[in-house]
């Protein structure tokens, strides 16, 4: 029996002016149904690339992804993505943004009234029913992110992919949304892959934390199982020795074993190699 979601020997080369750039090398990961997995690693190591390959937005150069034993080779709503910068359509209201997804996924399966209820229900899950008719530029960053999550949940995805969903938010809003996400995950039992930079977030939310080595040719360094019982309460856990042990493990991986040597390059690393070079040349 194979696991629910399977990444086997996933490698990817990006074409650059200086020849192919191997961003990922032989990533192997098996994820069970209903599992919550975090990807953590330094900036530019290839977390988004992994997520995009699972989403189908990038194609692995070698190796591949199986979801329920079916190969993933194109994007689709059964692998919904919550993008880092919400990616709501600015000309649609919160309701309409979710509606676009619901209409697409449940065309012919739900009646109009059922769709309406389903849209409102999903916006309720993220506590956004008070702003159904607001457009993205009329609501705060946290609210946008919540609508983005509602849109993804409304697709009833087999796998929910989240690329730093709370990265751009202040600490309070972030904590609030993390709690919402834990509730939703407990209720719906989604399979989730979430990218994060935040060690506490990773430990609090995940069943397993996948720690990636630095690129180029990044791969999975270590996997940490977080066997803290759920529901988890952040305040109680902050005094829990096991919690602090997991935190310590992740920090030790990131800052001792995978220490970034060329820290100054962090800013330029985010860009495709060609651009980074151009900047370096301009600076010289």
């Amino acid at each position: 029996m194979h696991s629910y979601l399977q990444l086997s020997d996933v490698s990817i080369d990006f074409p650059t002016p200086k020849g192919p750039y191997r961003a990922l090398d032989k990533v192997n990961l098996n994820i069970a149904r209903g599992e919550f997995v975090s990807l953590i690693g330094h900036s530019g190591c290839g977390k988004s690339t992994v997520l995009n390959i699972v989403a189908g937005l990038h194609q692995a150069t070698t190796g591949g992804v199986l979801l329920q034993d079916k190969e993933v080779n194109a994007p689709g709503p059964e692998r919904a993505v919550v993008f880092q910068n919400h990616s709501l359509l600015p000309w649609l209201t919160a309701y309409e943004n979710v509606e676009l997804a619901v209409k697409q996924v449940f065309k012919g399966k739900k009646s109009r009234a059922e769709m309406r209820d389903w849209i409102v229900h999903n916006l309720e899950l993220v506590h956004m029913t008070h702003a159904l008719d607001k457009r993205p530029d009329e609501i705060s960053g946290g609210m946008k992110q919540r609508v983005g999550i509602a849109r993804a949940l409304a697709m009833e995805p087999k796998v929910l992919l989240m690329d730093e969903p709370f990265g751009a938010l202040d600490a309070l809003t972030r904590a609030h949304l993390q709690d919402s996400l834990m509730e939703i995950h407990a209720d719906l039992g989604n399979t989730v892959i979430m990218i994060t930079h935040d060690v506490d977030e990773a430990v609090l939310l995940s069943d397993r934390i996948v720690m990636m080595t630095n690129g180029p040719a990044a791969t999975i360094g270590e996997i940490l199982s977080i066997d803290l019982e759920r529901p988890r309460k952040r305040v109680e856990l902050s005094g829990d020795a096991r919690y602090n042990h997991f935190r310590h493990e992740v920090l030790a991986f990131l800052y001792e074993r995978q220490r970034k040597v060329e820290d100054i390059n962090v800013a330029t690393r985010k860009r495709p190699a060609g651009q980074a070079e151009a900047r370096a040349a301009a600076a010289a």
């Binding site: 994007p75 689709g76 709503p77 993505v81 910068n85 990616s87 359509l89 697409q104 996924v105 697709m155």
Partner: peptide, 12 residues
């Protein structure tokens, strides 16, 4: 690109 990705994920 983000909006295009949304469109792709939704298979519009």
């Amino acid at each position: 690109k983000d909006l295009l990705n949304v469109s792709q994920v939704l298979r519009l």
